[in-house]
Design a protein around this nucleic acid. Structure first.
Length: 125
DNA sequence: CTATTGACGACAT
DNA sequence: CATGTCGCCAATA
């Protein structure tokens, strides 16, 4: 099944976020980031750089981080599943403990600041 | 317009 | 493994 921009998952259910994202206050760039993030399934993680690549702006990983920080749909649009390129946790608006808790609830463990089995659960779009 | 700020990343040391 | 540097980009002041 092909997954389109704007579609994603809440829990395990596929949801189309397009209308809500478009109606939000975000800038065009932020809306693209949120739409891409929404596709990351439960149990997987991705990275700031991969999201940047997925929206056609491969060098905008820092700006992606900023857009994550502004995500008004968290945690349904799962910005907590975005981690750093080396598998370390990266930041979170509500603090690293919250990010770890959300991931743990999805079966993703963070040990010594690094996502367990990072390479094998990486979502690359 | 310029300057500054970040939930970054690649590379050097 | 741990820092530091530099490049990059969107948002903001």
């Amino acid at each position: 099944m092909r997954v389109f921009l704007g579609e994603g998952f809440v829990e395990d259910k596929m949801v189309n976020w397009t209308a809500r994202i478009n109606a939000s206050e975000g800038t065009p760039f932020q809306k693209k980031v949120w739409g891409a993030m929404a596709r990351i399934p439960r149990g997987k993680v991705s990275t700031y750089g991969l999201v940047a690549r997925a929206i056609g702006k491969p060098k905008a990983m820092r700006a992606v981080g900023y857009a994550c920080n502004q995500n008004p749909f968290a945690p349904d649009i799962p910005c907590h599943r975005i981690v750093s390129s080396d598998g370390t946790l990266g930041g979170y608006a509500q603090g690293p403990a919250k990010k770890r808790a959300l991931l743990k609830r999805e079966g993703i463990l963070v040990q010594e600041g690094r996502v367990k089995e990072f390479e094998s659960i990486l979502y690359t779009f």
